[in-house]
Design a protein around this nucleic acid. Structure first.
Lengths: 144, 144
DNA sequence: CTTGACCTGTGTGTAACGCACAGGTTGTAG
DNA sequence: CTACAACCTGTGCGTTACACACAGGTCAAG
């Protein structure tokens, strides 16, 4: 039987992360000591390693929870796994594009500001640098 | 004097976002009705539009708070603004790179899985697809 | 006066931890 | 056997930027 710390070492996971996973019910202790300390088997270490793999692949903890619950019932989670990854690939592509647009906006702004002096704010203006950025009035919506 | 809803319309900001900004003290009501309703001036609409501009440029709400507080005291926030953007540009570049690596991992996995059938989980394995992914054991750390 | 539509402030939930705290445990020295 | 320090334990709260729900208030129409 392993303590939280030992399980953390065994599964190459920070101990506070193990405790967090316990808290949200992603893993459960196999037993409990009289003083409240939680105990685990090497099986739990295997599961934790699985969780880290899945996270590394972009699965959320909730999705991982679903997957392990399916697996626990003997149902194959593979179909869901494929669907989730496909969805995540699309999602991630959109996010990356958004961040690249932001990157461009920031770089353009910084370059533009190189030619501008600092200013003292007055009633009309908070920071003339930010207010000078082009296109800050034209856009309108943000997708989820 | 404007109500929350009118301020939201005036500044092109969703009303629930205005309420959130009020909650965290990013904006303050100019006055208050007897029934607790908060009231604003057109100056507040200007400030809200500034906030939206800054957000669009990648500033966090906390940073915007600092900036407006500086401006309120008559100090120029421009120097901080330049520093923050520089920092954010670097940060964002790192994040984008991480997300592109994740994208590659996900795409490689999905392709690899095309050749694999679904599997029924047993005691040793939760999902053989995820467990089959290469390199899921080799890495070790994540930066903040 | 009532009905209905709309608006109000506020409590809570989200993702995935990070940090802090009070108390428990273990090892070593005296 | 005791004193003390180092470490470990569970848990509460804070983080970001909202989204949603809810009970109650306001306003115009009829």
């Amino acid at each position: 039987m392993l303590t939280v710390n030992e399980l953390a070492l065994e599964s190459d996971t920070p101990a506070h992360v193990v405790r967090y996973y316990l808290r949200i019910g992603l893993i459960q202790p196999a037993a409990q000591q009289e003083n409240g300390y939680r105990l685990f088997t090497s099986n739990d270490a295997t599961r934790l390693r699985f969780i880290r793999m899945a996270k590394h692949l972009g699965f959320t903890l909730n999705e991982i929870k679903q997957i392990t619950q399916h697996a626990e019932l003997g149902e194959s989670p593979c179909d869901d796994v494929r669907k989730i990854i496909q969805h995540r690939i699309h999602e991630n592509r959109v996010k990356i594009e958004e961040m690249m647009k932001l990157q461009e906006r920031m770089e353009q702004a910084l370059e533009q500001w190189n030619l501008m002096p600092d200013g003292i704010p007055d009633g009309n203006s908070v920071c003339h640098l930010i207010e000078s950025v082009e296109g800050s009035e034209g856009h309108c919506h943000t997708e989820t």
